[in-house]
Design a protein around this nucleic acid. Structure first.
Lengths: 335, 335
DNA sequence: TTGTATGCGTTATCAT
DNA sequence: ATGATAACGCATACAA
């Protein structure tokens, strides 16, 4: 079933039908609108997307681009990413768009992908530091929002959380609970995000005149096993009484790893996460963590994206979302 | 950059370029193939998908369709689904296809969606029982694979696991460990899958001459909170010493909920899950569970789908994947 | 308010 | 082996 057939059935031209489909009611009399709509409905007519896209030079596709990580692991093994993607798809659908997901590693791949599909908008989740954003933006007309990115590019649209504040809060909380020898367990990637979180940790320590000990910096993969390995290393430094991490999933790994070394959380080791995943409220002990409000993050990403796609241009290029500490059971008060 | 421009640069016709792009080398001399390829590469030319799709009546899109669940929850809050989707995207990309994800609830929506985009293939993850598969297949040319579906339709392509065996194994394991009063905690949906799992449970009991007690059937939502609620109900029946569930996420909820009722797992209550999620190996206590080999499930789904898309037609319509029990720490031996 | 001509970028068909 | 022409289904621009 095509526009042409509908037009014939209605005894009008293709353009009149097209205008009705696209809700350009100012160009069609109410009477014909109704007549055509009825025929469309009766015949279950649905416009062909490919034709539409080709003709209008735009798809209704929003790409959700996730990093291509560790060899055989799926990016969705990280629950944070998974949760975010789920939220995004829902909002996109509400806006009449379609979500295409793609795990991508190189700039060239990205450019090709966005261009060949005429992707209207893209959301990069935790983009790798090594892709050149300026270059990307120059070669593509797609509106792009980066989540959790600290690329140095003023033109880039970015949604971040207050990474510095997050670790500052968790470290301060530990100090207030009497901890001094606090481990910092982070991802083994070297980017601005980690840098900021490390800075928040250091500043909280220095503020209370606690020296920063570089031996307490542990870096591992962001996954459960990363946490387990970190716990093993931490267990060897017996003076350490607490650890903050840059991901809940790592914190949960630490809790498990600590057990392997005969330590229990929080009796022997206090742990604070970062993310506030659903699971963190159900693991044992329940994880004290930094909530980064994933729902709001997703919503802001969509808001910003459509602000540009629909050329409203009211929101700033960079949006920072506040964080706060969720007090649960993985920290022991030493006082 | 279009085919036309490439053709002009090469001094040939559009069709020659098109044939090169589509690897129809039998129709082009090797010399021109090389010449055109060089020009394509130099100009970073990428064929336009919309035009291609329109002309060839096929997209290179595979839809991953997930159920639209509980009001404000994203489907990805279920880690099982998330893991599966991640695996699927990867395999699709390897095959030169693109993954569009869509949460859908009704048949009409589904038909419209598949048709408007000329979707080549679709994978339904845990489809709702209430969509009429026969009707769907009739109205769509898309090849569709259903995962975890027991729709009564011989033509439907389906990947299932041995649901019956799963709960049979877990129940038998509990019995062998001295348990008799065993709760069955399932989803509150009423479908064949649950029915089979319940049957496995019942048969294992009857095999050992243990009467089936319908009071021990608990049904809740498939999420952490569902497990917590189940635990509360189970705690009231003090004679119950063990529970099997139809999802790890529920089992983890039970572990947490048991604590709220002053019970600890496995001392006071043994629990067995179903799925073998990554997290189940890191929660406390580590969850004894039924492994359903998600990776294999995803791979088989893709295999079956492409077997039909590429008209090889070698695989059967229905494929059942084996399951096995993973012994960990959430079951106590009463003997 | 409605209709006509043309183009979007590619592929299929039929010639050469 | 290569090319000309039409067709895919819709939307834009302009005319009536």
């Amino acid at each position: 079933m095509t526009i042409k057939e509908i037009a014939e059935l209605a005894g009008v031209s293709q353009m009149t039908v097209s205008n009705v489909i696209n809700h350009k009611y100012s160009k069609v009399s109410k009477k014909t609108v109704d007549k055509i709509n009825k025929i469309i409905e009766k015949n279950n007519y649905i416009p062909n997307r490919s034709a539409r896209n080709l003709s209008s030079q735009s798809s209704k596709i929003i790409a959700i681009i996730v990093p291509l990580i560790y060899n055989d692991e799926s990016f969705f093994s990280d629950p944070y990413t998974a949760q975010l993607v789920g939220l995004l798809e829902k909002d996109l659908r509400k806006n009449g768009y379609f979500a295409m997901i793609r795990s991508i590693s190189t700039l060239e791949e990205t450019v090709s992908f966005l261009n060949e599909w005429n992707i209207d908008g893209a959301i990069f989740i935790f983009p790798k530091a090594n892709i050149d954003v300026k270059n990307l933006l120059d070669r593509v007309s797609t509106k792009i929002v980066f989540i959790d990115s600290y690329q140095e590019c003023d033109d880039a649209l970015v949604i971040n959380i207050d990474d510095y504040k997050g670790t500052y809060l968790s470290t301060k909380y530990l100090i207030n609970n009497g901890h001094k020898n606090i481990a910092f367990v982070s991802a083994n990637s070297n980017n601005k995000l980690i840098e900021l979180r490390y800075q928040g940790y250091k500043d909280a320590l220095l503020e209370k005149n606690i020296a920063v000990n570089s031996d307490y910096y542990f870096s591992n993969e962001i996954c459960l096993n990363g946490g387990i390995e970190a716990a093993r290393a931490i267990a060897e430094k017996k003076e350490i009484t607490a650890a903050i991490t840059t991901a809940d999933i790592v914190a949960i790994g630490i809790i498990d790893g600590a057990r392997l070394s005969g330590l229990s959380v929080p009796q022997d080791l206090s742990v604070i996460g970062f993310d506030n995943l659903t699971i963190s409220n159900y693991c044992y002990p329940k994880l004290t963590t930094i909530d980064q409000n994933i729902a709001k993050k997703g919503k802001m990403a969509i808001d910003l994206l459509f602000d540009r796609i629909e050329k409203r241009n009211q929101l700033p290029n960079k949006i920072k979302i506040d964080v706060n500490l969720i007090e649960r059971q993985s920290v022991r008060n030493l006082k």
